[in-house]
Design a protein around this nucleic acid. Structure first.
Lengths: 351, 351
DNA sequence: CCTACTGGACCAACGACAGTA
DNA sequence: GTACTGTCGTTGGTCCAGTAG
């Protein structure tokens, strides 16, 4: 195959009648260029539609101006939003983004992704995959002296971290239900191989424990409405008695809503449900969903700020930023209705 | 700032005790390397954790092995899915992806995005932005001799196209309602500045016209549940009489569902609704949503196949691929209830 | 000693060709 | 002649002397 060669700095120089060095100066806005030469070069660039080659520039300057992202599960709402937010946040910063989406949360996959990004000589790395238990030595050998911000994986000592505090998010959701008076709470978590799913789960448990409660059921699904529906349906079939359900994301909550509705259960009268994410749909479900909102665009901005700081001052101390999610109370939660069941007399505590 | 230099081909060569050419041969799997040298080089690469520089390689070979994507609105479901699908489809092809998301559907933005990608010397371009009416000359001057596949923009003669047939998708949805006996149909379209929104709209109109109908109302929203809710609420307030609603995506349909529900209207008894996309939530709404499914992963694969064909054989003729979307019938649509009096949904209210 | 410009080395790889066994 | 291996020139830029006005 034949490839037409793009115009180079030499073509521009020839056209403008100057040396190619002068063209380079114009590109890099070096002050020592005469008005005359500047104008001639600009016109030549314009008329030839010249674009300097990033690769050549990278080679000469030793800086790629590319930030690598290792992501996971970008078909899901959260990761997709984060990626879009990163894309937006990087605009105008002089950097561009290179994303590698791993298909498994294994060390091999992560290592492969990082190697791909190292071949691109990325100036820094955002580890946006919900990894649990990466060995410190493994990360060291993979990233060595690469500026790195961890946003969704388990924090590592000595590494910069910017995250949304999923644990607190989980606690907020659970505390809300407990505050309403619920004591029989079922858990519908995401895949516990995901670090954020695990943290939400632990946050729930922490709040329950603090109130002297244990979950009446613990279910694990895969984030999808379908899985949330199935898990909830099975829970209902099992005859377990519960007054509230904590879901690890809004989509599973949505599936749960459907399961309740099919059995004639009404929300929040018969069951309360809290989701997670505050997807755009959440406010328009039946009933509007109480949930925990995460600010992905803030997270993206912070991650990028921290990473550029690491790149510019490799010796500076690493920070740990935690963004606090926000509980959004809508109509899917309310105080449980008192039931006069034979073996559970009304010992209900004050809300 | 100080940047530690990554290991180069020379470091490997020194370590293995061969010339750096031999290392290059090993990397490129050239046959003329002795078993002995091969093994030594492999070990050196391994122990130094060497990764060849894409930039240097690109410069020497004149091929970047990068495919550029110009996208728009990646916070929305469709574009985000397409991007994730492209990412998946490109795995193992030897190419990597570079995405630029434009913030406006203007020629300036598109031109800027393409220039950014040209600086990267991308081997080919996927134009995945719902552009309407790009002048042929503008595209020519921007892309000149760049292999290009148009997937979401208005087709251009002489350029490869891979798309989902939105017009037919719109027709399918409308024909479904017409077939059920609906004659008073309202339209809730996406932003008509998006090419696919426009095509779905035109598809609806085409089917209606064929049945001798005109829409009883035409609304335009911004894809979000909130906008779908507002538009539908206004439609109901206006007192317009209709038995069915065509929505340009599932999220707006979801907003519409909420508006109907708030007014005590029941689906599909009082109103039928058809969405578009078949988001994972669609099957679990109340009622499960009849919609039109698009296969993004097939689209991504086809786009990539066509692009690599263009790259490998620039002289080969351009193809035009149209993927046909599929109507998924669920419970949000049914035959309209016959009434003796003019049906005005806005007058029905919950007791 | 500035200001404007030029020549050469260099970055990390590949490809053509020449040299060795 | 065949199977390896090394030298040299090239890619598109940047950066650092050096130089003339």
């Amino acid at each position: 195959m034949l490839k037409i060669k793009p115009t180079t700095i030499n073509d521009v120089a020839a056209r403008a009648g100057v040396s190619y060095q002068t063209v380079s100066r114009v590109i890099n806005q070096h002050p020592s260029v005469s008005k005359n030469a500047l104008e001639r070069v600009r016109q030549a660039i314009e008329s030839l539609n010249y674009q300097p080659s990033n690769a050549a520039r990278h080679l000469a300057t030793q800086r790629s101006k590319v930030i690598g992202v290792v992501s996971y599960g970008t078909v899901h709402y959260g990761p997709a939003q984060m990626l879009a937010s990163l894309e937006q946040a990087v605009q105008g910063s002089g950097y561009s983004l290179s994303n590698v989406n791993v298909s498994d949360l294994t060390l091999e996959e992560i290592a492969g992704a990082i190697q791909t990004l190292r071949r691109q000589r990325v100036d820094g790395l955002i580890l946006f995959a919900p990894l649990i238990g990466i060995a410190h030595t493994d990360l060291e050998s993979l990233c060595a002296d690469l500026p790195l911000v961890i946003t969704d994986a388990e924090p590592q000592s000595g590494r910069a971290v910017a995250s949304i505090d999923q644990f607190t998010g989980g606690r907020l959701a659970a505390q809300h239900l407990i505050g309403l008076g619920h004591r029989q709470i079922a858990l519908l978590s995401g895949p516990l191989t995901w670090y954020d799913a695990l943290l939400r789960h632990q946050g729930w448990l922490s709040a329950l424990q603090q109130a002297g409660l244990t979950p009446v059921a613990t279910l694990e699904s895969d984030w999808t409405p379908a899985s949330g529906y199935r898990a909830t349906a099975e829970l209902l079939e099992s005859g377990t008695s519960f007054t509230a359900l904590l879901a690890a994301n809004d989509q599973m909550a949505l599936g749960a809503l459907r399961a309740f509705h099919e059995r004639g259960l009404e929300l929040p009268r018969d069951v309360s449900v809290v989701g997670f994410d505050d997807i755009p749909e959440a406010a328009f479900l039946e009933p509007p969903l109480t949930t925990v909102r995460q600010d992905f665009s803030a997270l993206a901005q912070r991650s990028l700020d921290q990473l550029t700081a690491c790149i510019d001052q490799p010796s500076a101390p690493r920070h740990l930023t935690m963004l606090v999610p926000e509980l959004i109370v809508r109509s899917s939660t309310a105080a449980p209705v008192m039931k006069l069941e034979p073996h559970s007399p009304s010992l209900r505590r004050k809300p």
